[in-house]
Design a protein around this nucleic acid. Structure first.
Length: 509
RNA sequence: GGCCCCUUCGUCUAUCGGCUAGGACGCCAGGUUUUCAUCCUGGAAAGAGGAGUUCGAUUCUCCUAGGGGCUGCCA
């Protein structure tokens, strides 16, 4: 490995919200950078002005921040290699395209989009589905290879629209070593003369990405597998630009696949299958499109990140719960898998549950109190913590914690129908009445005290727990199941508990 | 269609020529629990197929099949 400083970039295009596959790419870049003591850079690839979506760039920045993987440098984060938006670097690219023309590795092409369309249609009709602008077809097109120099200069002087295409040699094997895949090799006969510079004066991704990576001194290009087919083209560009010695190392990541059926995870899968595919909720300002986000669905960013890290990578040990720091220590590109990873929503929920349980009681209490406040329930931190301790084993999300705790906040407005039918009878009614009498005489209404009192009642009357417990629970909480009744009573307090018992005696049949 | 990449339990994965193929999620059963949840124990569940290399292949090579990606003046 070279001794150059590690600098990696995440280079999304602001054409919409960043989906979880993109977040994972960003995460792997971040982890690698942190582990190597390098820098993680955010570059916005907005060379296609027709696909600009307002708010998308901010969404990307907000998403990275929420995940805790903020770039060290880049759009929105400052740095010495800016600007970090390709549209603002527009003026830089032409010189490199010109350089390629001068050294014979690129040429002007004057074919209009309509021309190309027509040729492709004709080729298709003739049974060839994939017409390419390449070393054989370029000789019958309008470009600086077929037109006289005079003609070319005239067209340029007249301001005729043109693009600049790379000129590929025929039958040349292009090889490079990918960190996750090993040697990859493609013959130029199977590649085409890609457009490097568009007629609107903007570079295409291919040119911009090489120029910027070089200028920004990027050491490793870590990106999705969908870029693998164009990697050889990029290698050639480094070569033709004279930068091959400083060419970054490549690592092409496996794709995230949809949980059902085939294909890569797409933005519509979430709504279809009932889980978010985006980190944050997205409301498209231009139409009514709305996509749910992990944040809004109550996921902890640590859980989301932990889950994502394991989709395509694992540390080789049996540890699965990792903090961000832990991940960056354990991470290695060599242990990234080659095959696509199918997203598993159950596993994601499990991760969230693990993180919920790992919170301290007071953290959980605070989160529960916050959640309750959203629903106009004011709750002391002390009480919230007590409830959280009791309820956390049955929650995946904070909102579960809140919803399952409803009976603490308000008296039963109804009673569980099944439990009423099965457990509420004249005996149950008598027990509740007797217990109420006993409890009313208790000075100490702590969990232990209530339990002791309750158990002495059972003992004195030679009753089993099952004879009295369910009716008691039903009376106080309206439910047929839940955590320890003694703890519940203690949290509710003596007055409230007694009043609820009264209420039940009045309302239940 | 062409090119490239990939292929271990349902899913995420471990194994870097010699294992009863391990773990996690989910699922099932039993136990603990007044109930539910938790927790504990156990269970079902896999190296696509075919050749070759080798004393020995999940592991290396090739072929086939299957899956995925790319195939735009999109990234």
């Amino acid at each position: 490995m070279s001794n150059a400083k590690v600098r990696v970039r995440f280079a999304p295009s602001p054409t919409g919200p960043l989906h979880m596959g993109g977040v994972r790419t960003a995460l792997y870049n971040y982890l690698f950078a942190k582990q190597q003591g390098g820098e993680f850079i955010l570059r916005i690839e907005d060379t296609d002005q027709t696909r600009f979506v307002p708010g998308a760039e901010q969404y990307i920045i907000d998403s990275l921040k929420w995940c805790g993987i903020s770039p060290d440098e880049g759009q929105g984060f400052g740095g010495d290699f800016g600007p970090y938006r390709q549209s603002e670097r527009k003026a830089m690219y032409k010189e490199y395209a010109d350089h390629l023309i001068k050294n014979g590795h690129a040429y002007y092409a004057f074919d209009s989009a309509d021309d190309l369309d027509r040729v492709r249609q004709m080729a298709k009709a003739a049974g060839s589905p994939n017409w390419q602008y390449n070393h054989v077809t370029r000789s019958s097109m309008k470009n600086s290879l077929t037109l006289s120099q005079n003609e070319v200069e005239k067209r340029l002087a007249n301001g005729e629209p043109y693009v600049i295409r790379i000129k590929l040699n025929r039958n040349e094997e292009v090889k490079f070593e990918d960190i996750v895949r090993g040697w990859v090799s493609v013959n130029t006969n199977n590649m085409d003369d890609k457009v490097l510079f568009k007629s609107d004066g903007m570079p295409t991704y291919h040119l911009a990405n090489i120029v910027d990576d070089h200028l920004m001194q990027i050491s490793h290009v870590i990106r999705g597998e969908e870029w693998l087919p164009s990697a050889p083209l990029h290698v050639l560009l480094y070569r033709y630009l004279g930068w091959e010695e400083q060419m970054p190392k490549f690592a092409h990541l496996p794709l995230l696949l949809k949980p059902d059926g085939n294909g890569k995870l797409s933005k519509r899968d979430g709504d279809r299958l009932g889980f978010p595919v985006f980190p944050l909720q997205w409301n498209n300002p231009e139409n009514d499109d709305q996509f749910s986000g992990y944040r809004e669905n109550g996921y902890f960013p640590e859980a989301f990140v932990n889950m994502l890290a394991f989709l395509g990578w694992n540390p080789g040990t049996e540890q699965e719960i990792f903090s961000l720091e832990g991940l960056s220590e354990a991470f290695s590109l060599e242990k990234v898998n080659k095959a696509g990873a199918r997203y598993d929503h159950d596993k994601t929920k499990w991760f969230n549950q693990q993180y919920l349980r790992s919170k301290t009681d007071s953290e959980l209490g605070q989160l529960l109190a916050d959640e309750a406040a959203k629903h106009q329930h004011s709750l002391s931190l002390e009480k919230a913590s007590a409830i959280a301790i009791l309820m956390k084993e049955r929650a995946y999300f904070i909102k579960d914690l809140y919803e399952e705790s409803q009976f603490f906040f308000s008296r039963p407005s109804s009673y569980d129908e099944k439990t009423t039918r099965k457990k509420w009878n004249s005996d149950a009614r008598n027990h509740v009445r007797a217990l109420k009498q006993m409890f009313s005489e208790l000075e100490d209404f702590s969990e232990d005290s209530v339990e002791q009192s309750f158990k002495s009642y059972l003992h004195d009357n030679e009753l089993g727990f099952g004879k009295v417990g369910p009716g008691f629970r039903l009376a106080v909480t309206g439910k047929g199941m839940g955590p320890s009744m003694f703890a519940i009573c203690s949290i509710l307090g003596k007055d409230e508990t007694l009043q609820r018992m009264d209420l039940a005696l009045e309302k239940l049949p």
